[in-house]
């Protein structure tokens, strides 16, 4: 009996041993073969990396410059929309119109596309906004603060606005382009004023001057002064025949902001200024070629409505910080004129 059982178990054992050897050999050979490498990407960062590299930003500026150059050469805004949008497109178009109307006497504003400072957003969502402080242009105009915006992943960065820096204005410190700056939402409450509030209050200040409730937050600045002077001039010139009113209102949704190094933000927004002259008697000859070109009339007898597209850049300090907002740069351009 025992003999039989052993006789049976032996082959089984042998088979087991055989399979064991085979398995070991297979494992050994498998160990010799290098395993296929697995992708080992860097971990997704907690904070998105800068949306653009400096090189990319430069490339964008170059392309914008190319488009502008083409438009400037032809004074034709038709091709501008490839790289321009928002107030920039509107203003540039008006400038072309003006340039055309004046026969080149008043050429469009020079827009240098060489970056002095680049502020890149840290974001992986859209729209994306980057700001660029340009070198001083050749005509010794003030440096410009450019805002470029990408509305979606398949959209290019377009020049959304430019604005000339005010005299003796100092730009707040911002993060380097390699680090990137945090985009600030329009309703962000970590600031003295949210971007939207800031734009609204500033518009009110522009409209009402010191009478505005927000006048304390917005001390007199170069832009307000300029606007007021221009308004006063207009009022004075039309005093005989018309009453002039001017209102400044923020453009809804046209505000963008990037965080500065101290936790504040650079807020850039679009304002619309409407100057309305209501004629009480007689008529007004539109001497300004731009007015004429924009309105398509030589004179108006009922009213004249000039619409200005304004771009204002301001520094809003962080909440708990400074109590006043500083206007950094602004642009004020007539983009539409209507009249009866």
């Amino acid at each position: 009996m025992t003999a039989r059982t052993t006789g049976r178990t032996r082959p089984v054992r042998r088979r087991l041993a055989g399979t064991a050897v085979a398995v070991v050999a297979a494992l050994g050979l498998a160990a010799c073969a290098n395993p296929v490498p697995e992708p080992a990407p860097d971990a997704a960062p907690a904070v998105p990396p800068p949306a653009l590299t400096v090189a990319q930003s430069t490339s964008v500026l170059d392309q914008v410059g190319a488009v502008l150059a083409a438009g400037d050469a032809a004074l034709d805004p038709a091709g501008l929309d490839a790289r321009l949008t928002g107030p920039a497109l509107a203003i540039r178009s008006a400038e072309y119109t003006r340039a055309s109307a004046t026969g080149g006497e008043r050429p469009p504003v020079t827009l240098p596309m060489t970056a002095q400072t680049t502020i890149i957003p840290d974001t992986d969502t859209w729209p994306r906004t980057q700001m660029v402080v340009t070198e001083q242009p050749d005509d010794l105009q003030a440096p410009l603060l450019l805002v470029l915006q990408q509305e979606g992943p398949r959209e290019p960065y377009r020049l959304w606005s430019w604005s000339r820096l005010g005299p003796s204005v100092e730009m707040p410190l911002t993060a380097t382009p390699e680090e990137g700056s945090e985009p600030v939402a329009a309703d962000d409450d970590s600031l003295l004023l949210s971007p939207n509030e800031a734009m609204a209050q500033y518009a009110d200040v522009l409209t009402n001057g010191d009478a505005s409730a927000a006048a304390a937050t917005f001390p007199a600045d170069f832009f307000r002064t300029a606007i007021t002077e221009a308004r006063n001039q207009t009022v004075a010139s039309l005093q005989a025949v018309a009453s002039v009113t001017e209102t400044v209102a923020p453009e809804q949704g046209a505000v963008t902001a990037l965080r500065t190094a101290d936790g504040g933000a650079i807020v850039v927004g679009q304002l619309t200024t409407v100057t309305t002259a209501t004629l009480s008697q007689g008529s007004i000859t539109l001497n300004d070629p731009l007015d004429a070109a924009l309105s398509g009339k030589q004179s108006v007898s009922a009213n004249l409505v000039r619409t200005w597209t304004d771009v204002v850049a301001m520094y809003v300090p962080p909440a708990g910080g400074a109590e006043t907002v500083t206007v950094l740069a602004a642009e004020h351009a007539r983009t539409a004129v209507t009249g009866e």
């Binding site: 929309d81 490839a82 949008t85 928002g86 497109l89 729209p127 509305e151 979606g152 398949r154 959209e155 377009r158 949704g253 046209a254």
Partner: peptide, 8 residues
Amino acid sequence: AASPSPSA
């Protein structure tokens, strides 16, 4: 944005 983006 109401920007002209016909191409898009």
